[in-house]
Amino acid sequence: MKTSRRISWIIGVAAILATVVAFPGRLPGQTSAAKSSGATSGSPMSVQVDRVDPGESDLAYSFQVAIYENLIEELNKTKQFERVLREGDRDAGNVPNLLILRTTIEKYTPGDETRRAVTTVSGATKLTVRSQLFTSDGKIVLERTVNGEVRFFGSNLQATHNLARNIAKAIQQSTWSGSEQSSAMLGAQF
């Protein structure tokens, strides 16, 4: 009696394990998310980087342009996307699985390189932005608040480089895998 119970228990556990291994993407929490996506899974994604929206801040144009250019460079470095397009690119309409990256400045603290060099503890340039990845039909697949700053050495524009690197890293490190849409939707929930 005891032996048959044990055998049936083992068979039950094995059946559950087999089900989980066979259908890894069909956990109840993920089903609806995967269905709500419009993009086709399995094909590589591309991204179009929009110009930086200064929001309410009085961020200098040089900083806005530097963030935009550094973002394009850093996203290309990650090799996560098949193509990294600029705003206004004529090819954007023909690229399948195109995502749009929008960056909005939330907070900007202007710094001073001389003050940093003299005092070490003050004069940091700090930037806080909201980064959003949209699908071409306007759905948000990833939203993050990212910081970039320069505290000790380097010019004020160095903050834009650090910020762009952090945004690219945040996109890469999220559960976003680039081609698996279910993972992308999981990333959006963070």
């Binding site: 342009v65 935009y68 250019e69 206004g88 004529r90 090819d91």
Partner: peptide
């Protein structure tokens, strides 16, 4: 002086140079 230019590339995309 920091001079920032915004220009349109051959592909129609927005470029910036500082």
């Amino acid at each position: 002086d920091i001079l920032t230019l915004e220009y349109i590339g051959f592909d129609g995309g927005v470029h910036g140079v500082i």
